[in-house]
Design a protein around this nucleic acid. Structure first.
Lengths: 349, 349
DNA sequence: AGCCGTACAGCAAGCGCTTTCTATGTATAA
DNA sequence: TTATACATAGAAAGCGCTTGCTGTACGGCT
């Protein structure tokens, strides 16, 4: 029914072993034989059986990419960059690998389940993107899983994630703290003294680091802080909208709102506008990430650009062993402050 | 070294067959035995070998999702929805399936290569999203490939794609023509008579259908058309920016610009603004898709909402055989006109 | 001429799992 | 009590491929 290696071998009048070697190309096969085999492959429309070959060779050409939300360009951009480097169709590398993009939705248990699934498939490499979840039990479980994957020969790369010590995983970490600090310093420099902060979900490293950067800036410049000025929410637009209304309710005199990311900032802008405030005349807004749309909203968003595509590409190359891992297995990727129209001087300054 | 089924069997004092049956759960196994096996699995930290099991069972739990651009939310939203329905971790369905999101970049050859890769993995199902490429040779090759996949038992679903006759593929097609027509009729109703159109890449069905809808509206209402008023480009923001400048150069008197999608519309807005025009006072702008950000730009984008998440979810269910395919294997998914601030009456009307 | 190195090609043993068929013990019916 | 069905577990035959090892033929060497 389905064509197998043996069928090709029969047709080409060679042994299955030879066909296999022609297809894998790492063994001397006479040119004439090779041609004959290739011709048979073509005529029979033969397609290798992936599972069988993975079983026999004890390796697979699957590469897993874990993302929190595939509908969010933040992850899409990284995933796309990883994929372009792992040598899938169209990638620069040679072999044909299949990128498996796994959508965890930010749920700890899904993260683990996907890792198990990838382990089951004997994935060649796994790239984890996005912030980690700060739960001791979960982190321990993740560390154990990553260690086991590494032991089984799967290369593990963390992209935009804090390092996972003693797991053998390479980490390209975003400098969220530094970026957050720089951003808030910019606002302080403009004269803002009453800054609201819309943070992401509580238990995320990304959330915490960005917030810490924000606070470090405030502290460094002697700017006061009020617990009412910080609200936590999700990393999406709607959450930004709601959080901003909440912030405004708590303290209508805020002159700036710093958002956990650009999507949240978008929601903040909408809420501000709906409540009759102008940006940046009445309230300044800042985002984080510099996603493609951020330059197009009006006014354009002041934000911190993270080199998502570059980091993803690098993660992909490291995962494929085509680039050396950074010293110590850890590299910090810095963001860049993008000053645009959404932040201005507060009234009367 | 690595733990195998046999190890578990030995530890649980049963045969490998029994372990397999416990793990797959479709054969009567005494409760006591099952417990013993499960305990051994746990103690040994056993992870099934995916390739081996796929080989033996001649099926796999991989589901492929082909997208043009994973960094584009248009695809991300659909892919996420498909994934949530195929029963991967966190999905509603039971079994644990791995969704493989493949980024074709819109390149014909990559589309085919990925399909081959998926065929090689003996994927359980494949969902193809996005417009098809209108090249006879490529379409024939695709049709052949899809037919072969279907023959091998892989369920094939097209989501937001025109039907592929005689391939056994189920198609959920977006009514791009109807949406395009409705959108332009709205503009005509507002009084516009000089409408620029920024189309997508030439060889895409999506591009052609949307443009046809636009033209049908013009024709139906006796509104003239000038070849200079149509420009082709890519489906991204930058392309929209450039195309708009080109449109303006060709005819500065245009009162409206209809874009192939929302990202393009965003670029158009930026170009219009940079050239000193106000939206919608001087020029109206319309998009297509209604991506999440479209409501947040200022003014909010008038566009056609496509139920991406719903369509993706349905495609996922059909791919899993959890929902019946539509009659004839084809269903048309309609868009909905979203009237917002970016379109107004032209000056003097 | 005889020997050996080299270049290919084939044999056959798995890889780790699923599944059919068979065996065994137990419960039910006659 | 014996015959029969049922529930459960095991034996074993692959699934389709890779790869270490074993030929075999040929050319160059001494």
């Amino acid at each position: 029914m389905t064509v197998t290696l043996a069928d090709v071998a029969a047709r080409a009048q060679v042994s299955p072993a030879t066909v296999s070697r022609v297809l894998n190309g790492n063994y001397p096969v006479a040119a004439a034989t090779r041609e004959r085999v290739l011709k048979a492959v073509d005529e029979l429309d033969y397609v290798l059986n992936g599972p069988a070959s993975a079983l026999a060779a004890a390796t697979s050409d699957l590469v897993g990419i874990l993302v929190n939300d595939i509908a969010d360009p933040f992850f899409g951009i990284m995933a796309g960059a990883v994929q372009s480097e792992i040598g899938g169709p169209g990638g620069r590398a040679g072999g044909e690998r299949l990128a498996v993009v796994c959508n965890t939705g930010g749920a700890p248990e899904r993260e683990l389940t996907y890792l198990t699934l990838l382990q089951r498939q004997r994935a060649a490499a796994v790239v984890l993107t996005g912030g980690a979840i700060e739960d001791a039990a979960h982190q321990a479980a993740m560390a154990a899983k990553l260690r086991r994957l590494a032991e089984a020969g799967t290369r593990v790369v963390l992209c935009g994630r804090p390092p996972a010590p003693e797991t053998g995983a390479v980490a390209l970490t975003f400098d969220n703290r530094g970026g957050g600090r720089e951003l808030t310093e910019h606002l302080i420099g403009l004269g803002h003294r009453r800054l609201g902060y819309i943070a992401g979900p509580q238990e995320r490293t990304t959330t915490r680091h960005r917030l810490e950067g924000h606070r470090a800036a405030l502290a460094a410049h002697g700017v006061g802080e009020d617990p009412r000025w910080t609200v936590h929410g999700r990393y999406d637009r709607q959450s930004g909208y709601e959080a901003t209304l909440e912030l405004l309710r708590r303290d209508p005199s805020l002159t700036a709102v710093v958002a956990a990311n650009d999507s949240v900032a978008l929601g903040a802008c909408a809420a501000l506008r709906d409540s009759g405030r102008r940006i940046p005349d009445d309230v300044s807004v800042a985002g984080f990430d510099d996603l493609p749309f951020s330059i197009d909203v009006v006014p354009a968003l002041t934000t911190v650009r993270l080199p998502l595509a570059e980091a993803g590409a690098r993660a992909g190359r490291i995962a494929m062993g085509r680039e050396e891992a950074p010293a110590g297995g850890i590299a910090t990727v810095r963001g860049e402050l993008m000053v645009r129209g959404s932040c201005g001087r507060p009234r009367g300054v």
